[in-house]
Amino acid sequence: MKLPINYVLVPVLESALIKSVSRIIDINHSTGQALIIGLEYPLKKPGVIGIEEISYELEQGILRVEQDLPAAYMLKDEDELSDKEKLSREKAILYYKLRYRSS
Rank of each mutant, 00 (worst) to 15 (best):
Y56S: 11
N28C: 10
D79Y: 14
S102C: 11
R99L: 15
H29V: 04
E57K: 02
I62F: 14
Y96K: 00
K91R: 10
E85W: 02
E78M: 05
H29D: 06
R64A: 14
P4L: 07
E52V: 10
K19W: 01
S82P: 02
I37A: 09
E53A: 15
I18H: 06
I62K: 08
N6C: 05
N6F: 15
L9P: 00
L63Q: 02
L58N: 02
T31M: 12
L58Y: 03
E40A: 10
K2F: 13
V65G: 05
E59C: 07
K44R: 14
Y96W: 15
A92E: 04
G47H: 02
I36K: 04
Y41C: 04
K91T: 02
Y73W: 11
Q60K: 15
L13H: 10
G38T: 06
R99E: 14
Y7L: 12
K76G: 04
G38M: 02
Y96N: 11
L43Q: 07
N6M: 14
D77T: 03
E14P: 11
V65M: 12
I62S: 07
G32K: 04
Q33W: 09
L94S: 06
N28K: 11
E66H: 06
K76E: 08
S82W: 11
E90H: 05
P46N: 04
I49A: 05
L17D: 00
L58D: 01
Q33G: 08
G38D: 11
P42N: 09
L9E: 04
E78Q: 06
Q60V: 08
L63G: 03
M74K: 07
A34V: 04
R89H: 10
R89N: 09
P4G: 04
D68T: 14
A16C: 03
D26N: 12
E40F: 08
N28W: 09
I54Q: 04
Y73I: 05
Q60E: 15
D68W: 13
R89S: 13
K76M: 09
E66K: 04
P42K: 13
D26I: 01
K76P: 00
I18R: 07
P4H: 02
P70S: 01
Y100C: 12
V48R: 01
E14T: 14
S55F: 00
V10F: 13
A71R: 05
N6D: 13
E14V: 13
G50T: 01
Y73T: 08
L94G: 03
L87W: 05
S103N: 12
